[in-house]
């Protein structure tokens, strides 16, 4: 298990954050870790599921960080499913 620092942002937030995740974390867990720094902090909570974009495409929730090919300091963006 290795820690993977990510540059991350919630689409509705105003700043890019440094969010460390584990390479074994699922994408759903990555979304939660980013939400913890943004939703209810600066972004108004909405009861909608969260999705994660990496390299321009939405990444399936069940994949792990490693399986999704997300490397250290890659940029991921979490957003509510409209």
């Amino acid at each position: 298990m290795a820690t993977v620092p990510l540059t991350a942002a919630h689409k509705e937030d105003f700043v890019v954050l440094l969010v460390p995740v584990e390479d074994t974390d699922t994408i759903a867990q990555v979304a939660q870790k980013i939400a913890a720094h943004t939703v209810g902090i600066r972004v108004k909570p909405r009861n909608k599921p969260l999705q994660v974009m990496h390299n321009g495409r939405m990444v399936p929730d069940h994949l792990t960080v490693a399986e999704a090919g997300i490397r250290p300091m890659d940029y991921v963006e979490v957003s509510y499913v409209e």
């Binding site: 937030d13 105003f14 700043v15 890019v16 963006e77």
Partner: peptide, 15 residues
Amino acid sequence: PIVTLSDPKQKHNAP
């Protein structure tokens, strides 16, 4: 710090 336009309609926040 890398701050971005807060307008959700804008395309992306990536650095």
